[in-house]
Simulated scan of single mutants.
Amino acid sequence: MKVDLFDFELPPERIALRPARPRDSARLLSVPGQGPFADLIVRDLPGLLNPGDVLVFNDTRVIPAQLEGRRGDARIGATLHKRIDLRRWQAFVRNGKRLRGGDTIEFGAGVTATAEARHADGSWTLFFPGDEPVEVLLERAGTMPLPPYIAGKRPTDEQDRRDYQTMFAQKDGAVAAPTAALHFTPELLAALDARGVVHETLTLHVGAGTFLPVKAQDTTEHAMHAEWGRIDAATADRLNAARAAGKRVIAVGTTSLRLLESATGEDRIIRQFEGDTSIFITPGYRFRAIDGLMTNFHLPKSTLFMLVSALMGLDRMQDAYAHAIAQGYRFYSYGDSSLLIP
């Protein structure tokens, strides 16, 4: 499909630079497969779900993977986006043309990295010497890797270290938040429990590639960056049992959805999964694992807008986004949410 089909105009003032407070006071657009949209707030979510429905959250934790440093007189910016091994990460590098293999980058606070190899997409393998875990080095020298549409408008601050984590964040490794779950609070989770809604977790370490624009003119020409994920056997068994009992599995966030679909065969059985996924979901895809999706509002011509269009239909999502823009919904990572039930 032509990428231009997924374009739309978004007024800049609709881009949220801070999250709603409290988190579950964000707006929620209910988008059924047919019929009118409903303008609600996230706190209304329990009333939209049935007892026995399963919400699936991503328990990845965002690490401060944005680094600013120097190679001699040259300023170098690095955003780590995928772990290679204990001491090596693949990174998108700003001013990478000033690097040569073997160069040392000084990031301050005693943190250095060696530029080992340049990849075909322009990213680099960075090696961090020493005995301290790389995550410890990042806590010392790194900042939270806010999306460019936020970081370009204001500086990152200490508040972002709290705001850009979900209440489910446990497993270090993401360089972007699974933002649909940013709206959840202990109070909302208690209300969902009281409604009889079940929740499960999986892990997908979101990479910075999620923010990269689609430069191809046709979706068939776009290559996704791989991300590491894991679903354990017990979780897969519980999800399969819920579906067998006629209950709905609703992914909270496109990251949860993509991992669930990666772990599910043509027989619609969810299986244990551990490894990389580069699944790219566009209209025409047949969903096998999920019955709905809770997600924020995505960028024009992005792989994520293509995903929601695959779930609901392109015309339906264009109408939903036009409604959201007209009604003043806030977009992107710190913005409002939607519940999509085909």
Score class of each variant (00 low, 15 high):
226 A>Y: 12
144 M>L: 14
148 P>K: 08
142 G>D: 01
191 A>L: 12
191 A>K: 15
219 T>D: 13
192 L>N: 00
213 P>I: 00
229 G>Y: 07
166 T>Q: 00
230 R>V: 12
160 D>Q: 06
181 A>N: 03
173 G>N: 07
173 G>I: 05
221 E>L: 13
148 P>M: 02
167 M>H: 06
197 V>I: 07
233 A>Q: 15
212 L>R: 12
196 G>T: 10
168 F>T: 04
157 D>Y: 04
170 Q>H: 13
173 G>H: 05
205 H>D: 12
199 H>F: 04
214 V>S: 03
228 W>E: 15
197 V>F: 05
151 A>Y: 08
223 A>E: 13
205 H>K: 10
200 E>I: 02
173 G>A: 04
179 T>H: 06
200 E>L: 04
195 R>I: 11
193 D>Y: 14
155 P>F: 05
212 L>F: 08
191 A>R: 15
203 T>V: 14
153 K>E: 15
154 R>F: 04
144 M>E: 05
168 F>I: 06
175 V>S: 14
158 E>R: 10
170 Q>K: 13
155 P>L: 02
214 V>G: 02
176 A>Q: 00
219 T>V: 09
224 M>K: 10
160 D>G: 01
142 G>A: 02
149 Y>D: 11
195 R>V: 06
161 R>F: 12
169 A>W: 06
181 A>C: 02
168 F>L: 10
224 M>G: 03
206 V>N: 09
228 W>G: 05
158 E>V: 05
166 T>M: 08
152 G>M: 08
233 A>K: 13
160 D>L: 00
158 E>N: 10
189 L>E: 14
198 V>Y: 11
189 L>Y: 09
185 T>A: 09
214 V>E: 08
213 P>D: 04
181 A>W: 00
195 R>W: 08
184 F>V: 09
203 T>C: 11
228 W>I: 13
